[in-house]
Design a protein around this nucleic acid. Structure first.
Lengths: 256, 256
DNA sequence: CGCGATTTGTGCACGTCTTCACAAGCGCCT
DNA sequence: AGGCGCTTGTGAAGACGTGCACAAATCGCG
């Protein structure tokens, strides 16, 4: 039953690199595990149990074990997981063994901040290019990088082997930029503009919309307010007990 | 038992103000519908069919109808939804009828950008306070707001009725700030720091981690690369057909 | 060398979310 | 008035994700 070859373990023999096709939910959690593991490694831990790691991340330990089992991970029963090995495995699966080049389009308010954000380098990415359509911004130097005109994207993409495009433009320009990115072969886009992008099949788009996050919080705030406004209900089937609704995406009340 | 006052139900008859407890997945989509509806309203549309709206947002139309039905929405069969009415309904449910005050803690790189982001005002929020622990940043004026020291948070929270706290500090300071926010009564937190926050029950935390988003994209990039690198497989049960995995969270390949 | 403590990996049941498909309702046109 | 086309709202089925609970595996110790 057990596969003897490691999927493509970092330093091992030239086995098949076949990536197991992980559930999306698992993929979304792997980066969190990775971050926690780095912290643990820095703190000197050599091994960690699923219980310990799950506590650090704030997830159910069974879920964590299942996630790790999906990538054929090697934990040791009775002991736990080897922290360094697990880091290697997750980084491999996430494709972080190569430092991917990111092109950032739109050096306005937000783009400026992203360009200066130092949290990327340590996590497997390199901002390789800054681009903007506004001629008055072209030429500006941010964090050692010079802003170039967006028209130069084809040249830049080729020279730097851009793997991921980040859109931090106003909404009105986002679709145009996305088309441009796609045209030069970028197949992964992170979109900060508040709009829906349409892209051809095979191109992945993730979006981050700050206002949406706030609005979701606002809903819960509204809801909590409407609950506490109610008098203490005896047995009314209408209102669940105040803490009775579980938070799915939102992390809530993680015990120390 | 039945509350007769309606907190602000849109102009209609005295319906029950009780917030239906929507599925989390629905709550997360409502803001997207709202944004699309505003666009449609600006474009002059008075009504919109579920098909049309779902196309604009990039979701399945049945899903959209079910989402809207959850909030007891009034669509008209054979016609569609009244755009203005639907906007009102969604804004009410999301608690956007009152402009909520947001406190932003951490005016570094990212915080600076968030403070200057003008996309909040139009979406129901007001940045009411900027705070930082670094004395050298206190006193700086950004977008008409003066940065105050984080120790002043209690006074600020009371004066401004802060409803939501945004943490844009380094990871090391995030937990401390979260504790502070909770202490002054904030029950909704948006966390940009790359770390897990533990908060008491009843406090909602949403997080945005830019590096995680990139890492998820990196996985898909890695995966796509490993697929195209394979020779055309005949019937190997290992590799699914290239387009065979559906994108759940990630939007992918929206037609036209 | 065997035993107990510990921890992984997973079968199973449950809940949530998604999608299809269709009846019910509405307006318009004849 | 009646019928027809369009659109909503929803029942039901399937896919997906989660969490419990336990067997299998490993280590350390006497």
């Amino acid at each position: 039953m057990s596969q003897h070859r490691h999927p493509g373990a970092p330093g091992s023999a030239g086995a098949v690199p076949a990536l197991p096709d992980l559930p999306e939910a698992t993929v979304a959690r792997l980066p969190e595990y990775l971050r926690a593991l780095h912290n643990l490694a820095d703190a000197g831990h050599e091994t960690i149990s699923s219980e310990g790691l799950s506590a650090a991340v704030g997830v159910n330990s069974a879920k964590l074990r299942k996630d790790l089992s999906h990538l054929g991970s090697y934990g040791t029963r009775g002991v736990g997981y080897d922290v360094a090995l697990l880091i290697e495995q997750i980084e491999y699966v996430l494709g972080l063994t190569q430092r991917r080049a990111v092109a950032l389009v739109g050096v306005g308010n937000l783009g400026h901040a992203l360009a200066g954000y130092d949290g990327f380098a340590g996590r497997g990415f390199r901002i390789a290019a800054l681009l903007d359509a506004d001629p008055s911004r072209v030429g500006e130097e941010i964090n050692g990088l010079v802003v170039r005109h967006v028209d130069e994207l084809p040249a830049v993409a080729e020279a730097e082997s851009i793997a991921i495009g980040v859109i931090a433009t106003p909404a009105a320009a986002a679709q145009r930029v996305a088309d441009l990115l796609v045209a030069v072969g970028v197949t992964s886009i992170l979109n900060f503009a508040p709009c829906v992008l349409s892209v051809p099949e095979g191109v992945d788009v993730r979006k981050v919309d700050l206002a949406i996050e706030l609005q979701i919080l606002s809903f819960h705030e509204h809801r909590k307010a409407s609950l506490t406004a109610l008098p203490a209900t005896g047995g009314s089937a209408l209102t669940a007990l105040p803490g009775g609704f579980a938070a799915t995406d939102t992390q809530e009340a993680i015990g120390t």
